[in-house]
Amino acid sequence: MKEADKEPKQLSLDQMLKELREEYWKSVSEAREEEAREGVELFTFWLGEERYGIDLIYCRHLLKVPKIVRLPQIPEHILGVFNLRGEIVPALDLRRLFGMKISPPSENSRLLVVEVKEIMIALFLDWIDDIIFMELKELQPISGKETGVPAQYLKGYFPPASEGERMLIYLDLEQLLASEKLIES
């Protein structure tokens, strides 16, 4: 309770981002000129056993889970709303939307605030993972039921780099937030 009452603390996503960008630019600065690599910067995170990525350009803030106020008669996957420095932002639980197993919030749970087409919404994450650059030529189309996530919310997946790792599921945030199911009950 005490923890939840505190104002959501902003982790230094900006800092993290900056460092990663610098690192990234350093590594590609020479190669960049000759061959422009087509790719995306992804913010990656875990929901249960699965690893997901979304376009970094949509990410705005990363927060410890604040007190979320429940609203009456809205779809189950909307956890409620919380106060983000004077703005009221809805929090979404993708696990429920995707029909995944739900584990209770932990130390590692975070809210990632994203903004797409003027809609500000927060996603509940089990773990944050990394910010990485992925080449688009690696992207595999989702053919069937590899993930259990409805195919219209996905751009595809990146196969695991080595044995024993999980594949990276690339979410289509625009589709996700445009989907009627999301907010209309």
Partner: peptide, 12 residues
């Protein structure tokens, strides 16, 4: 309430 919810939350 945020625009995405406007008029859709019953009783609020």
């Amino acid at each position: 309430l945020p625009k995405s919810f406007a008029r859709r939350v019953p009783f609020v």
